[in-house]
Design a protein around this nucleic acid. Structure first.
Lengths: 337, 337
DNA sequence: CGACTATTGTGGATCGATCTACATTTTTCA
DNA sequence: TGAAAAATGTAGATCGATCCACAATAGTCG
């Protein structure tokens, strides 16, 4: 901080060579004698020189992939980040994360900020933004959208088959004899955007109709606190369902809290199914039956798709992860009336 | 992607003015007539122009604070990120996150990457890196270190009083009549670095000695899986303690899993205390007694300290959060033999 | 030995913004 | 009316890298 950061000129002066020569050494370019390399490298080490990305970015690609994630706790997003990191770790690309506020809006500042920083591709997780904006963004910068279903010719998608996942949940409960199955949906986004939660809700409706059961949907946010309130309100209304299918594990934990406070036992009184198979779902204290969608794998795939797009590909691709029912102790036979 | 990103020259041409004029509009600088502003702004909107950060960074500060965080799940880091975001959200600064692999090493690539990108300050959470490296890094770039105790004249520290926190845990258990209290410490870092876990362990030892109790420390990683294994091994050895003080909530959840699988009830057979007061600790399924250290608040303070340093301050500051015992149902009276 | 090719190194244009210095026009007001 | 002040706009240097074009030197071989 005392003196300013050393530049390539400082290195050149210290080594007694030209700036171009130093640049060659940095880039491992052709035309560097061993003696010169040796001198330059010593100067670099002595000065503690590191090239500035900003200056490099003026002329070359940044070898960086940006990841825009909602500032939402919940294991699932962490799983995705892990996957991206794992995949890029061994290669030349680095990852840069820009969090955004998880609200529906016209633009997505997290993605824009990455664009301004010249990342070569953007992976965005569950953006709540107009489809048209997303599409036009993707026309300017290679984009991979994770956990959102809107089709587009301009970006790749990594999604779970949420329709099938919801069907798995409903069928599992129906097999156990449940007929009054309420879905706590986090499908709070506006129109013109296909969130995973919208698709899960559609899958629920479809499966319920197919089985000849009455629909019952409560819509609320996906945080633990919001599902807690929504579930508590549902229980206060009296005549509670015998089973809950909640749109996320995080949400299911909130429902479990509410059920516990209302003195209802799980699964004796009410069965609960979540979605995501996050780390805590498997904990014996929860032992939550849930739908696995393999977030880490999705993150890895997203990173691969981004690298492919940077390289050459332009036609849009879609990768669909197949959900699986993970049966645990939060579901059981329906109570007979 | 078809054509390349529009530049300030394109905007100038479209608006029929000079590049300097456009730059003035962008920066809200003096000497812009309403008519010119209008024309420039229309051209910007039509072209979808956004200034490139890299070009800006060549001449001016980036108005960005970098946050380097370990790629470790666990609520506590998420809390800190939330705090930083909240604090910066209202001002002109943006935040950029660079994750790093949570291993002890010579250098910290997450911090370096942010430095290369010209962030104005770095907040780093729990870096496992040599103290000397950290110190020399901080001499070049304003740095705030969160959750690490090593003193330094060159960076600010935001820490919890981990010694006091550990004492709270031990005293609470002792008051309940426990005498065989095992500490599951995550103090796995090498020498020459004062991690929070090292301080917690020291606090435990001190408090136990003060109370005349025998020490019992098991060292293991802080992930749920690792404490699960460590706790299971402890229980297999036979003669288990009547209380566990685990270095983190995340770790405590692993211990609870192991206890549950060994058929031990909490708190009837064994009491458990965690550290962090993460979201799940308060869930009725866990109801974990723990030490709160207020991660979100720590994140906010870290952001403030970073902004102060950017502005002017050079002398090092330390902010210590006072821990509090949150008593829940995972602790109870010691079982009489 | 001389012509041709490799090797090694450098000068300087370039990327896209910012910002100083300055020129030109407009406004103010004695 | 005219001089000073204010407002408006532009030219061009600058930041720190990359990299093309080219010069200088060394090496090869008929």
């Amino acid at each position: 901080m005392s003196s300013s950061r050393p530049t390539i000129s400082d290195v050149a002066a210290a080594a007694g060579v030209s700036r171009a020569a130093v640049s060659k050494v940095l880039r491992d370019a052709y035309g560097v004698s061993p003696r010169m390399r040796e001198r330059v490298e010593r100067a670099i080490a002595e000065l503690g020189y590191r090239p500035r990305e900003a200056a490099r970015a003026m002329r070359t690609a940044t070898r960086t992939i940006g990841v825009a994630v909602p500032l939402l706790r919940g294991q699932f997003f962490a799983d995705i980040l892990d996957g991206v990191y794992e995949e890029l770790d061994t290669g030349p690309y680095r990852m840069l994360v820009s969090p955004f506020d998880h609200e529906t809006s016209e633009r997505n500042p997290g993605m824009e900020s990455l664009w301004d920083r010249e990342v070569e591709a953007v992976i965005v997780v569950s953006p709540k933004v107009r489809a048209s904006w997303l599409d036009s963004f993707a026309q300017r910068l290679p984009t991979v959208v994770v956990a959102r279903h809107d089709a587009s010719d301009h970006y790749d998608r990594v999604v779970n088959d949420d329709r099938a996942g919801a069907a798995l949940a409903v069928e599992h409960l129906a097999t156990l004899g449940h007929r009054r199955i309420t879905h706590l949906s986090h499908n709070v986004s506006g129109p013109g955007m296909l969130s995973p939660h919208a698709v899960r809700e559609a899958g629920y409706r479809e499966a319920m109709r197919r089985l000849g059961l009455d629909l019952s949907v409560v819509t609320c946010g996906g945080s633990e606190a919001e599902t807690y309130r929504a579930t508590a309100a549902l229980l206060d209304r009296g005549d509670p369902p015998t089973a809950l299918f909640v749109g996320s594990d995080q949400g299911a934990f909130g429902s479990l809290r509410a059920l516990s406070e209302h003195g209802l036992r799980v699964p004796d009184d009410v069965s609960v199914v979540g979605y995501d198979d996050t780390q805590f779902a498997s904990h014996p204290r929860f032992s939550l039956t849930t739908i696995a969608q393999y977030g880490t794998a999705m993150g890895r795939v997203a990173a691969d798709l981004a690298l492919e797009r940077i390289k050459a590909r332009t036609e849009a691709r879609e990768w669909v992860s197949q959900p699986a029912l993970i049966e645990r102790e939060s579901t059981g036979p329906a109570r007979l009336l």
